[in-house]
Computed example of a mutant assay.
Amino acid sequence: MPDYVNDGTVTSFALWNPADVGYLASYAAKALIEGDITGAEGDEFDGGKLGSYTVGADNIVLLGDPYVFDKDNIGDFNFG
Rank of each mutant, 00 (worst) to 15 (best):
M1H: 14
M1A: 14
P2S: 10
P2M: 09
P2R: 11
Y4D: 09
N6D: 08
T9S: 14
T11I: 12
S12R: 14
F13R: 10
L15S: 04
L15M: 14
L15T: 06
L15V: 12
W16I: 06
P18V: 12
P18I: 11
Y23V: 00
L24I: 05
L24M: 01
A25I: 06
A25W: 00
A25S: 12
A25F: 02
Y27E: 02
A28E: 04
A29G: 04
A29L: 13
A29K: 11
A29D: 00
K30G: 02
L32Y: 01
I33D: 13
G35S: 10
G35R: 09
T38I: 00
T38S: 13
A40L: 06
E41A: 13
G42L: 09
G42T: 02
D43A: 08
E44Y: 04
F45C: 03
D46H: 09
D46N: 14
G47T: 08
G48M: 01
G48S: 03
K49P: 01
S52R: 15
S52C: 00
S52F: 10
Y53P: 05
T54H: 08
T54I: 11
V55Y: 03
N59E: 08
I60K: 13
I60F: 05
I60P: 00
L63W: 03
G64L: 05
G64M: 11
G64Y: 11
D65F: 06
V68Q: 12
V68I: 15
V68T: 15
V68C: 08
F69G: 06
F69Q: 11
K71A: 15
K71L: 12
D72V: 06
I74L: 09
G75N: 14
D76V: 05
F77E: 08
F77Y: 15
N78Y: 13
N78D: 15
F79D: 01
G80N: 13
G80V: 13
